[in-house]
């Protein structure tokens, strides 16, 4: 009945470090986003046309893609660490992990498609 500290032999240091790094990147990207979209417009209203006028720039897909990867990683990793706290059975952990992984892959795919679509849309 006495539960003791059960070592898993799995370190969480990389996950923790990547979570911090992704947070810092997210913060920088968010600042870039604000600067490029909201302050560089110099009084112009931020509307559909204005945004569409930017999507063809070389930095647009780069910014959006980094946004996509870090936000997905940061969000899903955070969710995973919470779920891992509250699920102790191996089976359920596998279920949740697979689910989060699937969600991640799908969203990455959809997101990447959208970015490419927008970029190529302007070119055409």
């Amino acid at each position: 009945m006495n539960k003791d500290f059960k070592q898993t032999s799995r370190s969480g240091s990389l996950a923790w470090l990547l979570q911090r790094i992704s947070a810092v990147i997210l913060f920088i990207l968010l600042m870039l986003h604000f600067v490029t979209y909201h302050f560089l417009g110099k009084g112009k209203p931020v509307n559909y046309h204005w945004v569409m006028s930017k999507v063809g720039n070389w930095w647009f897909p780069l910014l959006q893609f980094m946004f996509l990867i870090t936000a997905l990683y940061h969000g899903l990793n955070g969710l995973w660490s919470v779920l891992e706290d509250y699920t102790t059975s191996k089976t359920w952990r596998l279920v949740w992990y697979s689910l989060l992984l699937t969600v991640g892959v799908v969203l990455l795919f959809v997101g990447t498609l959208t970015i490419i679509k927008l970029y190529t849309l302007k070119i055409a």
Partner: peptide, 8 residues
């Protein structure tokens, strides 16, 4: 340095 150590 373990999932059940400081990382929880």
């Amino acid at each position: 340095n373990d999932k059940n150590g400081v990382w929880r």
